[in-house]
């Protein structure tokens, strides 16, 4: 087991009223799984993903990753753990616009304990067909390339888990398929993927589908 969530509740306060985004969720994900989290907009999919990744502290409940209760760790310990064990891929890539691709990768070295070399990154970039874009800025790249660069950054520190929030949402079918194939490769190499998606293009790679509605897992 790589991820375990128990009694996960997340309540947001908005304009004097409370919105329950996660309502007592229990979840287990084993190593080597490719889990899709699906559901309508605003059902709590992304909230669940960010809570599992240590980016959003739940109101109550616990998340254990690799047997570590991540919200019991101090802020700095959690940052370090997250950077070493979890890779994130977002719909909007979030590459730093004033740095070229290699410099975006090298940002990881500014995190405590992280160490990636240019050779490592060149290898990963080659695998993702980005070797010719390493000295380009994000504004000079296509959306598919940006997403592949974002995926390369997520893979750089050899994480055990990748959390992806609609990574194909902005891509055309061809680029979407390419990104999904890389995620599948990562899974086959022993990694675990948890991906939030609206569409069905990733279904063929999924080992499990989780449906979320109104903050509950319904299937």
């Amino acid at each position: 087991m790589i991820v375990e969530a128990k009694g996960l509740v997340k309540i947001f306060k908005s304009g004097g009223r409370q919105v329950t985004a996660l309502d007592n969720i229990d979840l287990r994900i084993d190593q080597g799984e490719f889990v899709l989290i699906k559901g309508p907009s605003g059902c709590g999919k992304s909230t669940l993903l960010f809570s599992l990744g240590g980016l959003l502290k739940p109101t109550s409940g616990a998340v254990r990753i690799l047997n570590k209760d991540i919200y019991a760790l101090s802020e700095n310990q959690r940052l370090k753990f997250r950077s070493q064990e979890i890779g994130f891929v977002f719909q909007s890539y979030y590459l730093v616009p004033y740095l070229n691709v290699m410099e975006n990768f090298m940002l990881l070295n500014k995190v405590n304990g992280a160490r990636v070399t240019k050779d490592d990154m060149s290898r990963i970039a080659k695998r993702l067909h980005l070797e010719h874009r390493l000295d380009h800025k994000p504004s000079e790249m296509s959306v598919g390339e940006k997403q592949r660069a974002s995926l390369a950054r997520a893979l750089a520190l050899k994480p055990k888990l990748i959390l992806a929030d609609e990574p194909t949402g902005n891509l055309d079918p061809e680029n979407a398929e390419e990104v999904l194939r890389y995620l599948e490769e990562f899974r086959k190499d022993g990694g675990t993927v948890v991906m939030v998606t609206h569409g069905s293009d990733a279904d063929k790679y999924a080992t499990r589908n989780i449906k979320v509605d109104s903050g509950n897992i319904i299937d």
């Binding site: 980016l55 997250r82 950077s83 979030y94």
Partner: peptide
């Protein structure tokens, strides 16, 4: 804002 979010997600502390 997005840069801040990204840096936090890859492990940058708020101090940094």
């Amino acid at each position: 804002r997005h840069e801040i979010g990204l840096l936090r997600s890859i492990g940058f502390s708020t101090t940094k």
